[in-house]
Design a protein around this nucleic acid. Structure first.
Lengths: 165, 165
DNA sequence: TTGGAATGTCAACAAAGCTGACATAAACTG
DNA sequence: CAGTTTATGTCAGCTTTGTTGACATTCCAA
């Protein structure tokens, strides 16, 4: 399109380009959450429950404190969500073996079923987007997103990647 | 790993890859909003005000209805935000010339100053991310995000791009 | 002139974040 | 062992931002 010979490293960073990137994030994030939101709309759960269930599925046995750090919310906020999930039998909180203060979080079968339902919907959209854009684009997508994270969030993101290799 | 015989165009679309994409969106979006959020924390405004101010700056003279469609919220929700911005003298709502039912929205100098402050912070992060990732990656980033949008949101996104060429 | 569109507003409510304070049990430390 | 710190849970209250529903006003257009 426009760039690039000499200053390709600068030329594409016009305010207009950056603004488009900002708006792309905004609109894409709506799409990103739209499908799970629709599924959850009927139930007594919301986006916060989805996030909790997602990361418990991702790292079974994780502690409350770890989940807190990943989600970046207060324990009160998380606890409200977690309590309803435990009460409803979607999540099990087992007392830690080595450290009995800790609670290790697991999905029950029912919890795993919900996670799968939400995850399937979200992955379907991601799959479509990845397929439409192609492998090259996917690589760039991830590079930019990773560069956009706060460094501590990036560490957590990378830890999750490592953990599930 | 399960799939895929049919080739590289499918090979990279494992559930694990998709899941990483999902988590990248989650963590990156936190970074994306972190800087403006920090600035707004002190004031009586929030993310919703930022969004309104952003799109009014982007398309001066836009109507309430148009803004509604872009932001994807109810008029009551937007109205609450818009009212405080008008009361505080950051936004001016001019009665439409051709259709007097419409309100054409503009930023005042003060509103433009706030918009710049928020925008500068958000662009700085985007600039860093774009620079770190490189032009190729930026292109891929935008392709994937665009593919992830709902089609109506994509139309609005593209309309904004056209409008400010 | 009447119907419908665009807008504004009131009331009530819900989701999900926040702070602050306090309780309990377990682990660690001196 | 005593005292402190850590992990977790919980109560109360507040804020932001979203929602519905109802209703008023204005005014274009058939």
């Amino acid at each position: 399109m426009q760039d690039s010979h000499s200053g390709e490293s600068l030329l594409f960073l016009t305010d207009e380009q950056l603004r488009q990137g900002i708006e792309a994030m905004f609109f894409a994030y709506r799409g990103f959450t739209a499908d799970p939101d629709r599924i959850l709309a009927g139930m007594a759960y919301g986006r916060a429950h989805h996030r909790a269930v997602h990361f418990i599925a991702r790292a079974p046995g994780t502690t409350v404190n770890n989940l807190l750090a990943i989600l970046g919310v207060t324990k009160q906020s998380l606890n409200r969500v977690l309590r309803t999930l435990v009460e409803d039998g979607l999540v099990e909180a087992k007392i830690g073996r080595t450290d009995k203060r800790e609670r290790n979080l697991f999905l029950t079968d029912e919890g795993a079923a919900l996670e799968r339902k939400l995850s399937d919907a979200q992955r379907a959209r991601m799959r479509r987007a990845f397929r439409d854009a192609g492998p090259e684009a996917v690589s760039g997508f991830r590079q930019v997103l990773e560069a956009m994270m706060d460094s501590d969030q990036r560490r957590r993101y990378q830890a999750l990647r490592e953990g599930s290799k």
